[in-house]
Simulated scan of single mutants.
Amino acid sequence: MRLKYLLLLPALVLRFAQGAETVQLATYYDYVPWFVPGQPSAGLNARLASKLNSLAGGRYRFESVYIPRRRLDVLLQNGKVTLVVPWVHPRFFDDPGRTRYLWTGALMDDESLVVSSRAAPLEYDGPDSLRGKRFGAPSGHRFPDLEPLIAAGGLTRVDVPQIKNALHMLVSNRRLDFTIVDRSALEALRNDPFMDAALLHVASRPRTASYERSMLVPLDKPELYRFLQGALEALRRDRTWLVPHPRVTDKHAPATAGK
């Protein structure tokens, strides 16, 4: 009898796994600490997916994926793929009232910094203090507080592929006055072998006060939202998954033409 159950076990496990709902844990940050191109198991997004899978008990199967921001907006709008977007805040998705999406509690706290070259340091005192400057920003990323100034021609936005390319342009004194970097990303990029953080200047006043990075869940996925909200307690008890592995960096050198 025991042998019979042992023989059935692989089939039962397969059936159980096939019943799991696939959820794309989607980030539009294609840089450390969130995502490491070419290293699918590295980065906070992959570690979060692994942790959630261990908590899901086969009910969900979370897959860490990178999706460019414009494509992600389209997918969220059409609702054909089950998505969860971690590491974000309601103001990133024009949802200050938290009515367009469901929002979990915080995964972590962060703040937005204004970073320039140490050779031409820039201090920040509100958007108007950036007037007449050239601003490097990842394509598709939104900065609502700066949009009026950009639209009026008072601030020039230069789209770049990745934030580290904007930083590289700054330290190389190439066509940018500043960029905006979250503290979490800047701390991770300090370990990048292609970046000399000593050549960067961080404005003493942050662009934003400290804010929470949460998980965005579509309105039509209340059960998934309840699972994630419940999982937060376990994620907060064990914070080891948030600690990056030593010297995990993008193995590709940054483009010299800018991000």
Rank of each mutant, 00 (worst) to 15 (best):
K164W: 07
L3H: 07
L199F: 00
A42G: 01
L7Q: 14
S50Y: 00
R247A: 12
E212P: 11
T27F: 06
R239N: 06
I163F: 04
E147F: 03
S54R: 15
V171N: 01
A106Q: 08
V160Y: 07
V115P: 09
I150W: 01
P254F: 02
R175M: 00
T208H: 13
F93Q: 11
M1T: 12
T82S: 13
L155C: 04
L75D: 06
L107I: 05
L149R: 08
G153Y: 01
P244R: 07
P206R: 12
P68K: 11
L44G: 00
E147I: 00
P218A: 04
L44A: 09
Q229F: 10
V36W: 02
V115S: 02
T240V: 09
A209R: 15
V158C: 07
V84C: 13
H245R: 14
T249Y: 10
K251V: 09
E63Q: 11
A257W: 11
I150Y: 01
D159L: 05
Y211E: 11
R226Y: 09
K51H: 08
Q229R: 15
Y101R: 06
I150L: 00
G105Y: 09
R190F: 00
L235G: 04
R213N: 13
A255S: 11
D125L: 07
E233Y: 09
A188S: 14
L12E: 07
R226V: 10
V248W: 08
D30V: 09
F227C: 05
K4I: 10
P138M: 15
V248H: 06
R61V: 04
L224F: 10
R134F: 01
R213T: 09
L14D: 11
W87V: 05
R174S: 06
V115F: 06
H201I: 00
S54M: 12
T22N: 10
V243Q: 12
G19R: 15
A188M: 06
N165E: 14
G154D: 01
S184T: 13
L76C: 11
G126D: 07
S139V: 14
G132L: 06
P127A: 10
V81E: 11
T208Y: 11
Y225K: 08
G136L: 07
F92T: 11
D94V: 13
G132E: 00
W241G: 06
T156E: 12
Y66P: 10
F35W: 15
D73P: 06
V217P: 02
F178W: 05
P40N: 03
F135A: 03
E233M: 05
H201Y: 13
D94I: 13
S214K: 15
R131I: 04
W241E: 06
P10Q: 14
T249W: 08
P121Y: 02
V85T: 05
E212F: 09
K221V: 00
L189K: 05
R98Y: 07
P218C: 09
D73L: 15
N165R: 07
Q24I: 00
D125E: 04
S116E: 01
R236Y: 12
S64H: 01
R237M: 11
A253F: 02
D128Q: 06
G132A: 03
V243D: 08
D145A: 14
I163S: 09
Q39H: 14
S116L: 02
A106K: 13
V88L: 04
D125G: 10
V115M: 09
P33W: 10
A198I: 00
A257V: 05
Y5W: 15
S50Q: 12
A17T: 09
G97W: 10
A255Q: 10
L186F: 03
I67V: 15
S54W: 12
